[in-house]
């Protein structure tokens, strides 16, 4: 029924690019989220304010605007910054890099809140106990806090990843040949928009389902060793 007119391979290539983009943005976003949460919980007021401004601003902006600002604005900023450092060239940002930065920034803003909630959810007594054992702050964070943060934050981060996966389609607007862009190219060639956009929708659904299954396994793995409630 669905005749992909030879564009099947192209769509799969696009889907592969979508996955690469999502994973790269996820890594950037996780780092930003952890940094953001640490800053929000720190005793240093400027760090708290900066992190607070970051999450408020980025979460209040349309993702499409973030993508466009990074793509069109960043090369100018980078060129200016490079000039300040003595490099007199023209710095440009590829659509992939712009997409990773924009989606990573968005993911990081929401992840900051998720991580903050998770860190606060760890009983204070545990940290105190660790200190009593003579663990330093960093060791306590690494051995006691972080492993539990993962477990508590995973469902929230999982939801954010599903949102991120769909937001990758916005990067098509700046010309990255991910699934959406490849679909548009196929539509331009075949003039069958319904067929191809529906195919793209099905591919996104499949990716979502795979991600959901992986998350489910991840949550189970992170929760091993936790007493399980049985009904």
């Amino acid at each position: 029924m669905i005749d992909l007119a030879g564009f099947g391979d192209q769509l799969l290539l696009g889907a592969a690019m979508t996955v690469q983009l999502a994973v790269a943005a996820l890594i950037v976003g996780l780092v930003l989220g952890l940094l953001g949460a640490t800053a929000r919980l720190s005793g240093f007021a400027p760090a708290r304010a900066l992190a607070g401004a970051y999450t408020t601003v980025v979460r209040g902006l349309p993702e499409l605007i973030v993508v466009l600002i990074i793509y069109f604005g960043a090369s100018r900023l980078l060129t200016t910054a490079a000039a300040a450092l003595g490099y007199d060239g023209f710095v440009e940002l590829s659509p992939f890099a712009a997409g990773v930065i924009a989606l990573g920034l968005t993911f990081g803003a929401y992840a900051t809140e998720v991580f903050r909630g998770a860190i606060l959810a760890i009983p204070k007594g545990q940290v105190e106990a660790a200190h009593a054992f003579g663990m330093g702050r960093w060791l306590t964070f690494r051995r006691i806090v972080l492993p539990q943060v993962w477990r508590i934050a995973l469902p929230g981060l999982g939801n954010l990843f599903l949102v991120l996966l769909k937001d990758t389609s916005l990067v098509s607007v700046i010309g990255l040949e991910e699934l959406m862009r490849k679909t548009q190219i196929a539509v331009g060639f075949t003039r069958a928009p319904f067929t191809f956009y529906l195919t793209a929708a099905v591919l996104y659904l499949l990716m979502t389902m795979i991600a959901m299954a992986a998350l489910h396994r991840g949550e189970r793995a992170a929760a091993r060793g936790m007493p399980r409630l049985r009904g």
């Binding site: 769909k166 937001d167 990758t168 389609s169 916005l170 098509s172 959406m180 679909t183 956009y197 793209a200 929708a201 996104y204 659904l205 979502t208 389902m209």
Partner: peptide, 8 residues
């Protein structure tokens, strides 16, 4: 919920 708004 499983597909991008742009596709929709």
């Amino acid at each position: 919920r499983g597909t991008p708004l742009l596709v929709q």
